[in-house]
Design a protein around this nucleic acid. Sequence first.
DNA 1: CCAACCATGTAAGCTGTTACATGATTGA
DNA 2: TCAATCATGTAACAGCTTACATGGTTGG
Lengths: 176, 176
Amino acid sequence: MQHTALGYALLGLVQEEPRSGYALRKVFETTPMGTFSSSPGSIYPALKKLVKAGMLEQCLPDMGGKKRFHITPDGERQIKSWLHQPVTKTEVANSVDIALLRFAFLQNDKSTQPTLNFLTSFQSAVREQIDSLETYLNDPDNTSLSRHARLAVENGLRGFKAHLEWAISAEREFDA
Amino acid sequence: MQHTALGYALLGLVQEEPRSGYALRKVFETTPMGTFSSSPGSIYPALKKLVKAGMLEQCLPDMGGKKRFHITPDGERQIKSWLHQPVTKTEVANSVDIALLRFAFLQNDKSTQPTLNFLTSFQSAVREQIDSLETYLNDPDNTSLSRHARLAVENGLRGFKAHLEWAISAEREFDA
DNA sequence: CCAACCATGTAAGCTGTTACATGATTGA
DNA sequence: TCAATCATGTAACAGCTTACATGGTTGG
């Protein structure tokens, strides 16, 4: 349970600094992280589950009605193991956005090594995906591919090539 | 009901030619359309719902155990209205893959006009999205943006720019 | 004073996933 | 004959969305 994108997004944001449910919603509403929803009906239950799972704890109610949460040692462990997983081909194929969420949260890591590891595995995953798509386009079985279908696949190809170039240039930024 | 990606994917594939549930699964398993799942637990119930909604009908069981479906006039109307919707900014932001599914199915249209309309609105939607991301990066409120966060946004930007170039070159292909 | 926003939640409904279950047919 | 694949389904479970509900605070 809680192996969901939203769960990890909340965990990562709270790890940066203790936040309230409302503050978390605002992040989703006002940043490009908006892909990970923002409706109260998803966030509050998810927070409750994270608390029940022992990954978050409510801060002592110092003052002001705000109900803030902080991450627990167990939560830290959980998110770290999530962040340190190598990027797979299916992850880039089905949910690059989640991969990039992982990349963003690697900023909370003391060392840059995990970031470099991420970029390395991200590159190979993307390369695999590019190969698959090119093989598909060149497969003699698929000569009947309509122009629309071919263009749709080419769109995917362009997207993955852009991801690849990004990863290479990002790697250069961290080499320094 | 049935305003779901999978529902439309099934509708579009059956529109091309009558197919069985198993044949549809194979499409998801063997083509880049795999993003739209393939588990029997989602496809068979979805087909049943499409039949109940009057958008699909079971073909007469000519022979062979296969249970094929064909699209009804109402189904044709439904999918056409879905395909002809202009692409919006939020669609490219949250689900470009669905937008590209729509593009692919525009091949079933007699005229190329809907395809050109799609490409036009797709371009403006992508441009809007690019503007948003660039504004976000340049917003003085966000000077505290970490390197990771900035790079994550830049990844998004590269992706959308690739989409834009694709749409422009696709448009050229249909001009001829 | 009233609107807008802060802030937290619940409930119904739908979709999708995983896992299970079944039986026919084909090829080695 | 035995495994793989064809072929169709069901059931439990979990997640998200929409919509509703509530109450406090701030600013014009």
